[in-house]
């Protein structure tokens, strides 16, 4: 039963992945309006010459916030794994 459920979910995941790989729009084609907007206006709006930094820290700041949270969680987990062993007296 567990094998059946696992293979069912695996099949659904494979169908989803293959269909999204077929549906993804080709690189740079057709140009999305957002790309042109960012390339044309990023320097004037954010003042940063590096448009990648402008997207990371200004247009999509939430994405960077999530990335920082992931790093924080990773550090917390590693330090918790390797912390000093407390003697089990209490």
């Amino acid at each position: 039963m567990r094998n059946f459920v696992a293979s069912l979910f695996l099949g659904i995941a494979i169908v989803f992945l293959v269909s999204s790989a077929l549906l993804v729009h080709p690189f740079g084609e057709p140009p999305a309006p957002m790309d042109d907007y960012i390339i044309q206006n990023a320097q004037a709006e954010t003042g940063a010459n590096n448009v990648v930094a402008a997207v990371l820290f200004d247009y999509r700041g939430f994405d960077t916030l999530g990335e920082a949270t992931i790093l924080f969680t990773a550090v917390t987990g590693v330090v918790m794994l390797f912390r000093k062993k407390e003697t089990a007296e209490k």
Binding site: E45, T46, G47, A54
Partner: peptide
Amino acid sequence: GHTPPTGPNPGDIWTGGIIPLMN
């Protein structure tokens, strides 16, 4: 607080608003 002209330019350290601070 400076904003550079759109397109290639030599660059200026006093641009970017909060982006350098966030960096």
